[in-house]
Design a protein around this nucleic acid. Sequence first.
DNA 1: TTCACATTTCAATAATTCATGAATTATGGA
DNA 2: TCCATAATTCATGAATTATTGAAATGTGAA
Lengths: 110, 110
Amino acid sequence: MEKTNALSAFAALSQPLRLEVFRLLITRGEDGMLAGEIAHAMDVRQNTLSANLSVLLHAGLVRNTREGRAIRYFADTEGLRGLLGFLLQDCCGGRPELCQPLIEDLTCGC
Amino acid sequence: MEKTNALSAFAALSQPLRLEVFRLLITRGEDGMLAGEIAHAMDVRQNTLSANLSVLLHAGLVRNTREGRAIRYFADTEGLRGLLGFLLQDCCGGRPELCQPLIEDLTCGC
DNA sequence: TTCACATTTCAATAATTCATGAATTATGGA
DNA sequence: TCCATAATTCATGAATTATTGAAATGTGAA
């Protein structure tokens, strides 16, 4: 991941609606959700959601695919991994002892 | 870490200067850097840097301590860990098999 | 075709964020 | 005390971002 990508991803996650949408999509895994379903779940208008999904999309944090006249969105796990990798890559600065405990203690809490 | 904290942290990291400053501080570890040194390294004015350091500070991503008339800044590793933990905690959504590969493949690249 | 549905795109306004110059606070030394 | 240094705070204008209503696109069914 490049710096520009990372900046886009952080910006995308720094907006309440987008952070919630991303978290929601993450919990859905490969089931994903239709844009309309997400809009209903989040209680926002379709065009507002659409604009924000577009931001997440360009940041590489979600993917989508058309299903008839609806569009299904998924969290992009690869994108998230790239972002975390970027952060952790820059965290070491030649000092592996700094990263080691940081990575070791990470759990998903489940 | 709460949602509000996470939003602050993502917003803080979504600005080019702040992302660079944070990465720089991470590489310095416990040596940290004086505010003036950072401003010089980044080639920005003191008040511009100060405003941005303040954002990182309130986001819990850096710490500081006074040294005479100078102020030394450090990356807050705990804050970073909290942020990553927040992301990963919400990534599982009851499906540990989603997180496992994400965490396992993470390395700091050194 | 024609219509309805799901979603996106567009244009405009409202809100937020950013860098700057000027002023202020805090510390140390003469 | 008085001055110089290090950094922060404040107010302003410029730039960016977000939400909305309206219009447009794309798909499927009658």
